[in-house]
Amino acid sequence: MSHDEKSGEERLVYMANQIAMFFASQPENEQVDGIADHINKFWEPRMRRHLFEIIERGGDGLSPMVLEAAASIRRPQAA
């Protein structure tokens, strides 16, 4: 395995921040909703569950906009 490879969680944080980065440039009233809507539409429950786990541990590395959007992200049902 190569040294620069990210773990699953790091990748998830990276992806969430990437989404936030796009919406950060959108009109202000669309930013947070845009992030939540995107994650609800495209992230399967397992990924969202991991995301909430990260947030509950303090959200290390996540952009503040993702944390703000978390309130509108659908919580997956227990597996």
């Binding site: 699953g8 990748r11 399967e44 397992r46």
Partner: peptide, 13 residues
């Protein structure tokens, strides 16, 4: 009614 796994997610999972 929930989206499923994409290829990279399948591999991660």
């Amino acid at each position: 009614d929930e989206p499923g796994l994409r290829i990279p997610n399948m591999l991660d999972a």
